[in-house]
Simulated assay, not measured.
Amino acid sequence: MRAWAVVENKAPLQCIEVDDPVPVGTEVVVDVSHCGVCHSDLHFWEGSYDMGGGQIMRLRDRGVTLPRAIGHEISGRIIAHGPDAEGIEIGEQCAVYPWIGCGDCDRCAAGDDNLCMRQQSLGVLRHGGFAERVVVPHARYLVPLNGIDPAWAATFGCSGITVLSAIKKLQPQAPDSPVLLIGAGGLGLSAIAMLKALGHDRIISADIDARKREAALDMGATQAIDSAAADAAQQVEAAAGGKLSGAIDFVNVTATAQLATAVLGKGGKLIMVGVGGGQIPLSLAGMVFLARTVQGSNTGTPQDLRDVVSLAAAGKLSRIPLHRMPKDEANRAMTLLNENQVSGRIVLTKGAGASEHALARKSADP
């Protein structure tokens, strides 16, 4: 089968041939119809993460080998399975949970594959959705779509479950309690839709890009603020009517984390999701006096994926803007994302692209 893979970090993806998967045991083979393009794919392409304080985490030091087909926002059709796979049907359209755990540890036993220390995630340590097919080790990682648009459902495996998991960590929050969302890309827009689906109606979005702020308002944010403005913190507090009890940072660089902590009141919670990199100073005594919580949030669980699909099936979840592009244009998709040209989510398809929203054509590779 073909796979659009990172063969060398920071070099254009290459279309390579890899062996067709033959499932054994409980394994399931999914023919990928759609795959979202995420900022984490860019980090994989770069091969490293900024850990702050001059420290760099290199993926090769974490067991990642190349070539690797990236892509972890996957939906597709079941085409084969091993003899021990149960509860599935050939031809069934499913969303795929990509953050595969080891299956043996206490975290996996509790259903928290995303917290497993020995993950085998699709698009990271296993070939992901930029390949034509993926191997899923067990049917519990598949959620039937039951008529949901598979292009939209593909995004649930990362952006959908990541925002749901982060919002859960903010709870309890009254429906009219203002929540700050920093970043209005695919995750930020998904979070607006998710908050509204869960009954929240005071959502403040902050982003440096005017187009993305407009997209946030279109999705239902009550106010959108330029996070790079000198008085951004004052604008957020004015919009909220005072200090906030909750914020989620989908960018998570030094400047955005400082903005979020500046506007939190006593007992406030900051949930960190983005991996932009950097660090912030924290007053240890101040954390006690203000009783604040600063918490990281790493994707979500298989149950979160089932919950997101249920919300979508019930008609409660609004769609984010989707830009469909054929998989042969994977490099162009990565370039557009790298150049901050995307509002919403690019979703790679098997066939010709049919974008729901126009994107300017770029010719350079990422």
Rank of each mutant, 00 (worst) to 15 (best):
D31T: 06
H39V: 11
F250R: 10
P172E: 02
A247M: 03
M194V: 06
A285T: 10
I56Y: 00
G25Q: 10
R2L: 06
G241A: 01
A215R: 13
S245Y: 00
S355R: 15
D231H: 15
V24I: 09
V236M: 07
V347R: 15
V294L: 11
L305I: 05
V309C: 14
I90W: 01
L13Y: 12
A313D: 02
G296L: 03
P144V: 02
A109M: 06
A216V: 10
M194L: 10
L305V: 05
E89H: 10
P366M: 13
G91L: 06
L122T: 01
T293Y: 01
R319P: 07
I192W: 07
G344W: 08
H34C: 14
R319C: 09
A354T: 09
D207W: 12
D61T: 05
V273L: 02
D207H: 12
E237C: 11
D41G: 14
G63L: 11
G101L: 03
V29T: 00
H72L: 13
T349G: 14
K327D: 00
G241L: 04
H72T: 04
L181T: 04
L180T: 03
E17S: 14
A191H: 09
D61G: 02
P137I: 04
G199L: 10
E8I: 11
S205Q: 14
A232W: 09
L244T: 02
K266R: 10
Q93L: 15
G185S: 13
Q119L: 02
A139N: 02
G242D: 02
P175R: 09
V32Y: 03
H127V: 06
A221R: 08
G274Y: 02
N338P: 05
I70P: 13
H43G: 06
E339Y: 08
M325C: 06
P144C: 07
H357T: 13
S177L: 04
G199T: 10
R126K: 04
V163A: 07
I182R: 07
A193L: 11
M57H: 02
T65G: 04
L66I: 11
A255F: 02
A174F: 06
K169C: 01
A206Y: 10
I271Y: 00
V251H: 04
I225R: 09
M1S: 10
A224N: 03
E8M: 12
G186L: 11
G25E: 07
M287T: 08
V275P: 00
G76A: 08
E92G: 05
S245M: 05
G353T: 11
K10Q: 14
A247E: 00
V134Q: 06
S121A: 15
E237R: 15
I100K: 05
Y97Q: 03
I79N: 00
V29K: 03
G82E: 09
I204Q: 07
P137M: 05
I208S: 12
I346D: 07
V30Q: 01
A257H: 00
K327M: 15
A85H: 05
Q173M: 15
E92T: 13
P83T: 12
G220T: 08
M51S: 05
Q279K: 09
D31K: 14
R133H: 01
S165F: 01
S318W: 03
T162V: 03
G276F: 08
N298P: 00
T261Q: 10
G76M: 07
Y49R: 13
A232F: 15
I79M: 00
P98I: 04
I320S: 08
V251T: 09
G183S: 06
I204N: 04
L305M: 01
C35A: 12
E329I: 03
V28W: 01
